[in-house]
């Protein structure tokens, strides 16, 4: 218990330090970076809740992020702007204008509800069949987002979301996500699910209904994704369905793999490391492009670096940086070693 609290304290502490430092510095760029990081954290922790505990790779995660973002968009875009942003919106919802804070929550719940409905039968699949179905689910969600013009403005950019996500909100949500991820991991459901990852038969023999446990994890994971997506929507204020497809999936997956999928600590550190590297490389790319060193725009460098990093990590350290132990457990062990001396 003390170890888990230490883990939560250390990881939340990191975020708080970042918030304070950003506020003290007062640089807009860092503010943006910190918000981005907190939103990524929510998304990565969501993926960790499912993937880390069940051991099953899920591609659908970002689809649920999209559901959260579009739900909150429909609910919060000011009524007078809806005619422009969503010209074909159904009249029943056209008059709604909720507070973004409520709508973000509704976005998360909608994503969780959709996950609950569609995913139950999928949870008994494992290995390749599970991966392909989750991939297929991502494509289905993406196709619906791209073509359901009434609600999403189709493949075009949807604009007009109020800018409601500030650093405090994003950081607060990220801390809640850390607490929830640790709590789920250490709950009975989390423990059984993790034992099923190593030995499905044995966990089944212990009385665990594995598909149901996976289902619970998947719903929780989609809730995180939906909230993360909604937060992001109120941060960026305009987006198109392209934002919720393979590229974003790759980045979030990269964070989790590099940090270590099995631990909450890994998810947090992965998100931090990848975000910082990404933003630095983006800045480098922008710098090169501005200086017009090459005739063509430089793009794709960041993704190449991330892809290489993922491969290298999986080859050299298959479990990621934090493969099995949370930071709390590691610190306690170190403390005990010192006492022994």
């Amino acid at each position: 218990m003390a170890r888990n609290l230490t883990t939560i304290a250390v990881l939340s502490g990191l975020i708080l330090v970042m918030v304070v430092a950003t506020n003290l510095l007062g640089v807009r760029l860092f503010d943006r970076l910190a918000i981005n990081l907190c939103i990524s954290l929510v998304l990565v922790l969501g993926l960790q809740v499912f993937m880390g505990n069940s051991g099953i790779l899920s591609f659908a995660h970002i689809g649920f992020m999209g559901i959260g973002a579009y739900t909150t968009a429909v609910l919060t875009i000011p009524v007078r702007m809806k005619g422009m942003s969503l010209p074909d919106l159904y009249p029943i919802v056209a008059g709604i204008e909720l507070s973004p804070y409520v709508a973000i929550l509704v976005g998360g719940l909608t994503a969780a509800a959709v996950a609950a409905v569609v995913s139950y039968p999928l949870m008994r699949l494992s290995d390749a069949a599970a991966v392909i179905t989750s991939f297929a689910l991502l494509v289905v969600l993406h196709t619906v987002m791209t073509h359901w013009s009434e609600v999403t403005n189709g493949p075009r950019t949807l604009f007009g979301l109020p800018r409601a996500t500030d650093l405090n909100l994003a950081a607060g949500t990220a801390i809640l996500a850390i607490v929830a991820a640790v709590a789920f991991k250490e709950s009975r459901a989390g423990l059984l699910l993790r034992s099923s990852r190593d030995d499905e038969v044995a966990a089944g023999a212990m009385g665990a209904h594995i598909p149901r446990l996976r289902w619970q994890a998947f719903i929780l994971s989609a809730l995180f994704a939906g909230i993360g997506g909604a937060l992001w929507g109120h941060f960026i204020t305009s987006f198109s369905p392209k934002a919720f497809f393979l590229k974003e999936t790759f980045v979030i997956l990269g964070m989790l793999v590099i940090g270590g999928a099995s631990t909450v600590t890994g998810a947090v550190f992965g998100a931090i490391i990848v975000t910082v590297t990404f933003e630095s490389l983006r800045a480098l790319e922008a710098g090169i492009n501005q200086a017009k060193i090459f005739s063509e725009q430089v793009i794709g460098l960041t993704e190449i670096v991330l892809a290489l990093a993922m491969i290298v990590v999986l080859v050299l350290r298959p479990g990621g940086l934090f493969a099995t132990q949370e930071i709390g457990a590691l610190l306690w062990r170190r403390a005990r070693k010192k006492e022994d001396r």
Partner: peptide, 23 residues
């Protein structure tokens, strides 16, 4: 290693090649 690891590396390699073409 694991089935998942292989899937992820192949996904990463796919992104790598695509972005190499972009770059």
């Amino acid at each position: 290693k694991s089935v998942t690891a292989v899937l992820i590396t192949s996904f990463a390699f796919s992104t790598l090649l695509q972005n190499a073409a972009l770059l």
